[in-house]
């Protein structure tokens, strides 16, 4: 077998995105040569992208083998579960009045839940726990303040690495809180709530 799985999947990404883009672009007028419409350049770039995607796919049939690592069934199940759970959580949050639906909180909740579910599987943890921690930071920053956001995000992301000790994490949180306060609040005067708001 000479199939280059990575290239074929890359081609899939390029072609897929380009196809969606071309479809969305039907909303925009192409215009004339003199007065090009908003749809002209996107059409061109998506078309080039799609063409290149097909070229990559064609090459991928012959320049392999370059397999991707096999996914276990639990990896697949929890990834799909995360996608569904995340979307469901986000949509549910958007319906709840008050904090969950305010601003971008429903999006944050969706991402957070969507990332937490696959991180049940150990091999997904580096990717999804770091992402979940990042989302959590955004979720709590404006309500509980910078200090709480740092503490929660660091605590959650520390689970992604087995070598962490509870003492080390606490030390790191304290260190980062002091450092971030000194750098971002004291020195740079970033506009961000520092403490929880009541």
């Amino acid at each position: 077998m000479k199939l280059n799985t990575k290239d074929l999947l890359s081609a899939g990404v390029l072609i897929g995105v380009a196809a969606v883009g071309l479809w969305l672009n039907t909303d925009h007028t192409m215009g004339s040569a003199r007065r090009m419409g908003p749809g002209y350049m996107p059409w061109l770039s998506f078309a080039v992208m799609m063409g290149l995607g097909f070229l990559v796919a064609l090459a991928g049939l012959f320049n392999g083998p370059d397999p991707i690592s096999k996914w276990t069934s639990s990896e697949i199940v929890f990834l799909i579960g995360g996608a569904i759970g995340g979307v469901a959580a986000g949509m549910a949050a958007a319906q709840v009045p008050g904090w969950p639906s305010a601003g971008w909180n429903s999006l944050g909740i969706g991402i957070f839940v969507g990332c937490l579910i696959p991180s049940i599987v150990p091999s997904w943890r580096p990717l999804f726990l770091v992402s979940a921690a990042f989302a959590l930071f955004g979720l709590v920053l404006e309500h509980l303040g910078l200090m709480a956001a740092i503490a929660l995000a660091v605590a959650l992301s520390s689970l992604a690495d087995k070598t962490h000790t509870p003492k080390g994490v606490v030390g790191l949180v304290v260190f980062l809180c002091v450092l971030c306060w000194a750098v971002f609040i004291y020195e740079l005067d970033i506009r961000v709530p520092v403490w929880p708001q009541f």
Binding site: G145, I185, Y186, D189, R191, Q197
Partner: peptide, 17 residues
């Protein structure tokens, strides 16, 4: 003036409440 800015930062969270 930076002290003033600093002081202001601490109070901003409460501003809306």
């Amino acid at each position: 003036s930076r002290r003033v800015l600093l002081a202001s930062t601490m109070t901003v969270p409460m501003a809306g409440r």
